[in-house]
Design a protein around this nucleic acid. Structure first.
Lengths: 168, 168
DNA sequence: ATAAACTTTCAGAAATAATTGAAAGTTTAA
DNA sequence: TTAAACTTTCAATTATTTCTGAAAGTTTAT
């Protein structure tokens, strides 16, 4: 396969993955494009290569900046902004884990903890079933949260080293 | 807080989490409702409690059956189908992990592996950057895949026991 | 100052996804 | 049979998300 087709397939695949994750498809595609670019690209480059409008390109670049998945790069003697992606996969994984924890795990944990104590007779099976499920979930999600924290602090080799060793 | 409000909040929170995951909001809400119900519910119950149409209720119940997150329960002397959720949180986690692995990790891994070898001069920086990113990603996603496999085989206490011990 | 170069915003348009509800299909009891 | 009870389907509608592009905003060089 040639580079041009391979790039297209990669960008396409990354975009699909993104949307299955609840991440904007174009944002994922912009990310993919920058991931495989040896040098920084400007808004125009993105617009051309992905066939998207200026507004769309701009918005998704900002969002990727918010996630800290990409950085601005200033080219001396050029007024345009250029963007370059974080290339270290473990760093990318940590950024995504951090962001998803913040958006998904933490708010749910907060709600669950707020629902732990409810009024009513604990002998009522409705009340009992509710309390039990909420407690079990809160306990489980809490452990997930802690596990992600650990991953965020850990070093890649140690993390996968330990995890994958368990498999054997 | 009283049970009725607590239920509503729980269903709402679970629905939001679902849509952040790329899972149909109503499917997540039906799941939430069944999770906290001490007994099996029928389509009518779901329609009433969530204010959704018959078609919608039916489709999402089927989808939850596909995921194996809920089961049919037959009530003797009643022709209706009743549904009851898997209540064990670890079992639920495994089902979701299995399904997301199948839908997200596996297809991407397949594409990545197909892109590992491309034509062109390895000294060309475009080619080099592409190959490097694809190889790194493929390696990383492969490890994720293996890690999920391990989790699927493991027992909850052992899994979190080991993971959380690492944190200390 | 001001004009060119560049970035951001945002109302409307387009695309995508979810939902409805009635009709068609299926099963069961008598 | 057949008719009632129940489930499934799907075309049309509604809701939600994403995208466009032109206008407004900002920065920089002269």
């Amino acid at each position: 396969m040639n580079l041009t087709d391979a790039k297209k397939q990669f960008i396409q695949a990354w975009g699909t993955l993104g949307s299955e994750w609840g991440i904007n498809r174009t944002m994922a595609q912009v990310h993919a494009l920058l991931l495989i670019s040896p040098n920084a690209l400007c808004t125009e480059d993105i617009m051309e290569q992905l066939n998207v409008s200026r507004g769309n390109a701009n918005m998704n670049l900002r969002e990727l900046m918010n996630w800290t998945l990409i950085n601005k790069e200033l080219v001396p003697g050029d007024r345009k902004e250029y963007f370059i992606a974080v290339k270290d996969i473990w760093e990318i994984a940590r950024i995504i884990a951090r962001e998803r924890k913040r958006r998904e795990i933490e708010p749910v944990l907060k709600v669950l903890n707020g629902l732990k104590v409810i009024e009513g007779d604990q002998k009522d099976k409705e009340v009992k079933a509710f309390t039990e499920t909420v407690n079990n979930l809160s306990n489980f999600v809490g452990k997930m949260d802690k596990s992600v924290d650990m991953m965020l602090k850990a070093d890649e080799n140690w993390f996968f080293g330990t995890i994958l060793k368990m498999i054997k």
